[in-house]
């Protein structure tokens, strides 16, 4: 028996919108720790890891570990039927091949339940070792989204370089080149507007912009984004989800042949 009640149901709606472009089908894993997902895109170039901790739910009952295979587009279709202020409850019985999403309006005058068929998904679970990152950049998520969108109209790849001067996003295409430098800026009115760069050593890596743009679908989840870079390691683009957890996107770099 599984019953997870999330008062801020809009978070789950935003999570689905953030990942459904990247991943078609995925297993949601439910344990005492929380509601989580790890999935790769079909090309095995990017990986998404989601965690919504059990403490973040108003009610969290998970009698035994359960893995539920879902088509994310179908799940998103159902969650779009929930109002932004609705409370969402996820329910499943042991051994059932369906999951139920229950939507309650804030004043309890409308209650809907949507039952979705589960699917069997063979997924490879990757072990992600802790890494020391050469550079960690925290910046406003809307700014990062704007940069990725702007650069993708010029080129297909972005070179992200971190130096003492700041973080530089560069691209090149048939029509020309573009460079956008963001300097560290801690003297802002609100901490979420700051750009903070922690650099152990300079790093420069190349990534496909198509994936970066897909990651920015998570922008509504968090005011800030954290980009962690190390030479020849996948970049980690992390959006914190309120007090509940995170969504992390890992993207393999393009490597010189």
């Amino acid at each position: 028996m599984l019953e997870l009640r999330l008062v801020q149901g809009s978070l789950l709606k935003k999570v689905l919108e953030a990942i459904r472009e990247l991943v078609n089908d995925a297993n949601f894993d439910c344990s005492a720790t929380g509601f989580s997902l790890q999935a790769m895109d079909s090309s095995h170039v990017a990986l998404v890891a989601l965690l919504l901790r059990s403490e973040g739910f108003e009610h969290y009952r998970c009698d035994r570990n359960l893995s539920m295979g879902m088509n994310l587009n179908n799940m998103a279709k159902m969650l779009r039927c929930a109002g932004n202020d609705d409370i969402i409850t996820i329910k499943a019985d042991d051994g059932s091949d369906t999951v139920t999403f229950m939507f309650e309006s804030p004043n309890q005058d409308k209650i809907a339940d949507f039952e979705m068929k589960l699917m069997d998904i063979d997924s490879e679970h990757l072990g992600i070792p802790d890494a020391e990152y050469h550079a960690i950049v925290r910046m406003p998520s809307a700014e990062f989204a704007r940069i990725c969108k702007d650069l993708s109209s010029i080129g297909d790849t972005v070179v992200i370089s971190v130096t003492k001067e700041g973080v530089k996003f560069s691209t090149a295409g048939d029509i020309g080149t573009a460079n956008i430098v963001c300097r560290q800026n801690k003297t802002v009115d609100k901490p979420e507007e700051a750009t903070v760069i922690e650099m152990q050593e300079p790093v420069s890596l190349t990534f496909a912009l198509r994936y970066m743009n897909s990651f920015t679908k998570a922008t509504p989840l968090s005011e800030t984004v954290t980009i962690s870079l190390s030479s020849e390691l996948p970049v980690v683009v992390e959006y914190k989800i309120a007090d509940m957890g995170y969504i992390r996107f890992y993207l393999a770099p393009k490597i010189e042949e």
């Binding site: 170039v45 990986l47 990757l126 072990g127 393009k254 490597i255």
Partner: peptide, 14 residues
Amino acid sequence: VRKQSQITAFFSLG
């Protein structure tokens, strides 16, 4: 020439 690496080249199956 830059080649797109795969995420599976960095993380182990576990």
